[in-house]
Simulated scan of single mutants.
Amino acid sequence: MATGVAIRDVREQLFDAAERVLLRDGPSALTSRAVTTEAGCAKGVLHRHFADFDAFLAELVYDRVNRIDLQAVALHASAGTGTVTGNLADGLTTLFGSVAVAIVALVTFRDELRARLRETWPVGVPLLAEAATMIGSYLTAERELGRIAADADIDALAPTLIGAGHLLFADRKGTPPEPGAVRKMVTTVISGVLREPQR
């Protein structure tokens, strides 16, 4: 490839193909041949850009984790608007309605990938840990605005919401949960710390 832009295009093409295979067929079907076939390119293309298949998968995970940063900005910006429950339900639906659940399954499925990720992310599953940070940041902003109790334990609430949200969305072959089910779960988790907006 002649330019960095072209290389990036190939990487995105391969990442998008891997995502499609992962969503359609699950982590056991994700092979270098499946990815390059889905992307419509020669198998050697993947190996020109990545040291091996697990290096490719690690980069895929990090790329998808980085996308959470955009969601985090939007969720944080919603603090003080709408309802806390609605904002959290929407944020969790956006997060888990994407490829997030499939990425978690992939990390769980592949020992080599987990080992590779541990080199730079020693604790937790990268995507879930980043998602908990996103929810924690939002809850902190709402606490500062008085819509969450001042003594709310954000460090406990954020992973609880992520864990419960993941369980709601975890059935890859099933239909996504109804919006009402997501709101009900959020309401249950935060009911003890939710406060009326301060006027």
Rank of each mutant, 00 (worst) to 15 (best):
Y62K: 11
V61K: 11
D111G: 14
A105I: 05
S32I: 04
G136D: 02
E119Y: 09
A141M: 09
T83I: 03
M134N: 09
L88M: 06
L95S: 08
V10D: 06
D16Q: 09
V84C: 10
S98W: 02
L30G: 02
A129M: 13
F56V: 06
A141F: 13
E112L: 13
E38D: 09
W121H: 14
A129S: 15
F109Y: 15
V125P: 01
G124N: 07
T36Y: 00
V84M: 10
D63G: 08
A51I: 07
D54P: 03
L57K: 07
A141R: 15
L46F: 08
G86V: 13
N87E: 06
A58F: 02
A115V: 12
I103H: 05
A29Y: 04
R110Q: 13
A79Q: 01
E12S: 12
A105G: 13
R67D: 10
F50E: 07
T140A: 07
D63L: 01
A34D: 02
S32V: 02
A102L: 09
A42E: 15
D52S: 14
L139M: 00
A100W: 04
R11A: 13
L14C: 02
H47D: 01
V65I: 06
I135A: 05
E119M: 01
E130N: 11
V104D: 04
G97M: 12
A105K: 13
R114M: 08
A74V: 12
A34Y: 06
R8K: 12
C41N: 09
A51C: 06
N87G: 10
G91R: 04
V84A: 12
A132G: 15
A17E: 04
D54N: 11
D69P: 03
L14D: 01
Q13N: 14
E19C: 08
Y62T: 04
